[in-house]
Design a protein around this nucleic acid. Structure first.
Length: 91
DNA sequence: TATCTGACGATAG
DNA sequence: CCTATCGCCAGAT
C-alpha cells in the first residue's frame, strides 16, 4: 500500500452510512487535490476493502459500468437514486 | 526515463 | 443530455 492509497482508504472509512463524496473530494481529503482519477483506479482494484459505493462522480453520477450494483447499495443506506444519479441530502 | 491506461474533472459544442 | 478534448495523478509496462 502506498501512502496515497492508505490515505484514500482512511478517508472512505470515515464516511458514515448515508454520506457521499466525489472522487475529487476524496483525493483532496487524502492530500492529493486533482488526483480524482487515481482514486478511481485505486477503488477499481480495492473496492472489496472499502465502502466504494459512497463515492460518486463530480456531477453525482454513479460509477460508470456499476450503476446497477451501485444504486442498489446506495439505496440500502437510504440514499435516493434517480436515473443513475445519487441525490445528496438537501437536494 | 518514456508511454499507456483508467470506477476523474472541467469546458466547449 | 451527449460527445469530444484537454489536463491531471498514480501505477504498470
Amino acid at each position: 500500500m502506498t501512502a496515497f492509497e492508505d490515505a484514500v482508504a482512511a478517508v472512505l472509512l470515515t464516511l458514515r452510512p448515508g454520506d457521499v463524496m466525489t472522487y475529487g473530494e476524496v483525493a483532496a481529503e487524502a492530500g492529493r487535490p486533482g488526483a480524482a482519477r487515481a482514486v478511481g483506479s485505486f477503488l477499481a482494484h480495492n473496492g472489496g476493502d472499502v465502502p466504494w459505493w459512497r463515492v460518486v462522480t463530480s456531477t453525482g453520477r454513479l460509477v460508470p459500468g456499476h450503476e446497477t450494483e451501485h444504486a442498489r447499495r446506495l439505496r440500502a443506506e437510504g440514499i435516493t437514486v434517480r436515473r443513475g444519479y445519487a441525490v445528496r441530502a438537501g437536494r
